[in-house]
Amino acid sequence: MAEPVLSVRDLRVEFVTRRGALKAIDGVSFDIARGEVLGVVGESGAGKSVTGSAVTGLIDPPGRITGGEILLSGYRIDNLPPEQMRKVRGKRIGMIFQDPLTSLNPLYRVGDQLTETIRTHTNLSASGARKRAIDLLAEVGIPAPDRRIDSYPHEFSGGMRQRVVIALALCAEPELIIADEPTTALDVSVQAQIIALLKRLGRDHGTAIMLVTHDMGVIAETADRVAVMYAGRIAEIGPVRQVVQNPLHPYAKGLMGAIPSLKGDTHRLTQIPGSMPRLSAIPPGCAFNPRCPFVFDRCRVERPEPIARDLHPVACHLYDEAPARTESVA
């Protein structure tokens, strides 16, 4: 098997507050292969965005990486000095955020921002960079790119702005794109366009994409594999079809059942009682145990590690027990 573009091994991130260190990420491991889209899904507080920030080296103090390693094409990046990490971020990792306006400088024409980024990372001439910028804008589906390149960000609509941000992320032909809630601020009809665009680009350029979102629908449509996060850990990770249509972890089951569907008929949605624990009050054992309908003694004391039996990896003691119990769950 080829080396994965991104390999995260046992990542730990803590936030130091005056009440002590809070574990935001507690032992997360995953790989993303070339051309693959990994969806990272979870509810607020699950640690999905912090995982993205850790990979890009953009964790704001008082947060810091306290363990594990992050490898980009086999090259360790989690311990790079800030200056070197900045170069890696511009050249090898592209970023797309929820609000396109945070990635675009409102005072510069989008063309200037694109050509500047292109020239920083390649040795193209000014006119060559401009030509490449126009090509990129065309590729992300902006009509009349040769005219629009001289517009300011505020002259674009929300969906078009997000396309510009994607073009900006693609400037240096990165190996990896981190997209953090890229469609959350957009309307449904525009969201579908952006999803399709991301998917096509990933395939055409062989870029690995880490798609962080709370929207299962977006994941289901876009991702090849999906990691379901809960309270700073991965509860379940596997091919998107398997996880969405036949989730194993009780949390993932609850999550899928909680989403109203456009098909089928349900009077009541599956509901998980309670809510995600605060970082300061993560229960011992399995973090999900107070909300889990299948909880047993072992869950309250021992933390489950992701194990893959004949299925994809899932961090749940139910699947580490005798087969009889597994059947009773399904």
Binding site: S189, A192, Q193, A196, G217, E221, R241
Partner: peptide, 17 residues
């Protein structure tokens, strides 16, 4: 609307805003 039942399927997106 992105739908859970669409996992892995392709669709033709609509245009315009």
């Amino acid at each position: 609307v992105p739908d859970m039942n669409m996992a892995g399927e392709e669709r033709v997106p609509i245009s315009g805003e």
